[in-house]
Structure formats: structure tokens, C-alpha cells
């Protein structure tokens, strides 16, 4: 997330988290940050100070849910998953993102 502006960061991070949870669910916070990092070829580094507030925010909105589980190293942790509401929200958000980014690209390519 490097030098991205904060107001863009918040909404984008939510989208990335939801996408990661669609791909693999349930998953803990660390796993989400690793997945985002790997998918972006190490470009996007999710800061912990942003990740957990974002997870709480998404949980409050009802887009994700959690359960307590045990990791592969026998450690108890919170595992998040997408809810049905989260699924439909993600679909809508992705459609919006594609449309907006397409428009931005078109503008940037001019001249």
C-alpha cells in the first residue's frame, strides 16, 4: 500500500480482503496479508495498523464473519470467512472497480 493516498486505501483494502477471503476461506489476518502481498508480487504490503481495523469494520458491516480455530502450528487464532452479504457486495464492488479503472485507463492513455 506504500505511498497510496489514505482515502483511497481504506476502500481498496476492504476490496482486497474480501477478494482474498473469496479465494480462500476461512483465513486468519496474517494469511490475508500474505496472500495480498503474494498476488501483487510484493508490491502491496498491508500494514497491520490498517488490516485489523479493516477486518473489524467489515465484520461490523456483516460482510465477513469469524470463528476461532487452530492453525497449523497449533496456535489458536481468528479465522475469517465471507458471508452471503459479503459475496454480493464483492460482486458489485468488483464490477464498479472494473468500470472505474477502465475509465481511468482510457483517460490516462490519451495523448
Amino acid at each position: 500500500m506504500g505511498n497510496s493516498k489514505p482515502d483511497l486505501l481504506k476502500g481498496t483494502l476492504d476490496l482486497l480482503i474480501l477478494k482474498a477471503l473469496r479465494r480462500e476461506s476461512p483465513m486468519h489476518g496474517y494469511g490475508i496479508s500474505v496472500m495480498i502481498r503474494q498476488w501483487s508480487d510484493e508490491v502491496l504490503q498491508v500494514e497491520q495498523g490498517s488490516l485489523y481495523p479493516a477486518l473489524y469494520r467489515l465484520e461490523e458491516k456483516g460482510l465477513i464473519d469469524f470463528e476461532w480455530g487452530v492453525s497449523e502450528n497449533n496456535r489458536r487464532g481468528k479465522f475469517y470467512k465471507l458471508t452471503a452479504e459479503g459475496e454480493s457486495f464483492l460482486d458489485e464492488a468488483l464490477a464498479n472497480w472494473r468500470s472505474v479503472s477502465k475509465a481511468i485507463n482510457r483517460v490516462l492513455q490519451i495523448g
Binding site: 486468519h28 489476518g29 496474517y30 494469511g31 496479508s33 500474505v34 497491520q48 485489523y52 492453525s71 502450528n73 496456535r75 489458536r76 487464532g77 481468528k78
Partner: peptide, 17 residues
């Protein structure tokens, strides 16, 4: 307490990496 556990879990996973 939950948040503390979750973050310590994250640190531990990071350390393993």
C-alpha cells in the same frame, strides 16, 4: 483479549516465516 490473541498470533506467524 481477543485482539491481543489475534495480533500475537500474527506476530508468531510472521516470525515463523
Amino acid at each position: 483479549s481477543e485482539m491481543d490473541g489475534e495480533m500475537r498470533f500474527h506476530i508468531e506467524m510472521l516470525a515463523r516465516e
